[in-house]
């Protein structure tokens, strides 16, 4: 009743959630079985940064546009073109609309 049959297989989220919680529990058990003999409130609990002074955390935040810089730079050829299409000029919006209308007319007109 609660599962959906997609033709290929069955998706049952309740079973999935139970399995997921089980795997999470196993993960926590492994994590809990780790070493506990470190010294609290000492440098051992801090993240290890070698060399320079630790910079101000506000400057370490990677903001919006920088996150996928590598990806957008890699797809530069595609992005340059697609940005060119989105001109923001109303006449171009209409040109696309009328263009699609023309293509749809041609396709439908060719049928039978």
């Amino acid at each position: 009743m609660n599962a959906i049959n997609t033709g290929f297989g069955i998706w049952s989220p309740v079973v999935w959630t139970l399995l997921f919680l089980g795997v999470l529990g196993i993960g926590f058990w492994i994590w809990g079985a780790g070493r506990k003999d470190y010294k609290k409130n000492s440098d051992q609990t801090k993240p290890f940064l070698a060399g320079n002074e630790e910079p101000d955390p506000a400057r370490l935040h990677v903001s919006g546009d920088h996150l996928y810089w590598g990806m957008t730079a890699g797809l530069r050829a595609y992005y340059d073109r697609i940005r060119e299409w989105h001109t923001g000029v109303l006449s171009d919006y209409f040109a696309w609309f009328i263009g699609v209308l023309a293509v749809v007319f041609i396709v439908i007109g060719l049928l039978r």
């Binding site: 940005r83 000029v89 109303l90 006449s91």
Partner: peptide, 10 residues
Amino acid sequence: DVNKIKELRG
């Protein structure tokens, strides 16, 4: 002018 009203683009 419609060509100059394009603050919203991209």
